[in-house]
């Protein structure tokens, strides 16, 4: 009896959390002209149409590039920082930690606006560069946090052992530390990628002619028409994210890093 109540609660909660996603899949598979559920007959036409919309293609490429290179840049900055904060006694370590984590505390829309007004306009930086910087900054806290937590699980006497066997500090890092935090780095990359790809508020003000991230482009498209193509695209993107996360979970138990 108690078990039944448990499952009922879980079932209702999951319906609320995941149900809308299932509805989106079917709404996108409608054969009709307008958004509806249940759909007016099933077809794949909207799923296929998504690929023919030029602006979606452009913004998909931009979002992909931002997510990949922004996250890589964040890892490039974040891994050394996480390592230093973890292994060295630094003056002002707390301040550095707070500064690096600050992008998580400040709402994205403000960051976007601030970069637009004080970087893009006065310094004549292109919107694409500003977007790249913003996405890097946004992912940085995640990179530092996830890498830190896997460094925490790695005893520092392993590095000492490596040094005593003849390694330089750098060799100890590349030969011993890096191979053992690989999982954490990959998890940080995926988390950063998904965060960056799905990000809206930061990119809201940072758009220009022909330069729009995919979620912003979808919002703009929705203002014009409520046809099922946005639903189809949403479903496709969700499948993409899920596939990445699923593979990651299989490879390294991703969920313990979230």
């Amino acid at each position: 009896m108690k078990n039944l109540t448990s499952w009922a609660i879980i079932g209702l909660t999951l319906t609320f959390l995941i149900g809308p996603f299932i509805i989106i899949i079917f709404a996108g598979a409608s054969a009709g002209e307008s958004l509806a559920f249940p759909p007016d007959g099933l077809s794949l036409r909207w799923y296929l149409k998504v690929f023919t919309i030029e602006s979606f293609r452009q913004s998909f490429v931009l979002s992909m590039g931002l997510a990949i290179f922004g996250t890589l840049a964040a890892l490039l900055l974040g891994i050394p920082a996480a390592y230093a904060l973890n292994r060295y006694e630094l003056p002002g370590a707390e301040t550095i930690r707070t500064v690096v984590a600050s992008p998580i505390i400040v709402p994205g829309i403000i960051v976007g606006l601030a970069l637009l007004r004080y970087m893009v306009i006065p310094l004549d930086v292109t919107v694409t560069v500003a977007l790249f910087m913003a996405h890097t900054a946004l992912v940085l806290p995640y990179a530092v946090r996830v890498v830190s937590s896997s460094l925490n699980n790695l005893r520092s006497d392993m590095e000492e052992a490596a040094v005593l066997l003849g390694c330089t500090r750098l060799q100890a890092f590349t030969k011993v530390v890096l191979p053992n935090i690989r999982g954490g780095v990959l998890a940080a990359f995926i988390l950063g990628f998904v965060t960056s790809f799905n990000q809206v508020p930061v990119s809201l003000f940072l758009s220009g002619p022909g330069v729009r991230t995919l979620p912003i482009d979808m919002l703009a498209y929705m203002e014009i028409t409520y046809d099922p193509s946005v639903a189809a695209l949403s479903a496709l993107l969700a499948f993409m994210s899920l596939a990445i996360v699923f593979i990651a979970e299989r490879l390294l138990g991703f969920s313990r890093y979230v």
């Binding site: 999951l14 995941i18 996603f21 509805i23 709404a27 993107l237 899920l242 996360v245």
Partner: peptide, 25 residues
Amino acid sequence: VFGLVILPLMISPVARTYAWIVILG
């Protein structure tokens, strides 16, 4: 079940919000 709970976090908020138009429209 834990996997199913965190699954929505990986889905674009645009997609997740868009579903409510279908439900509440």
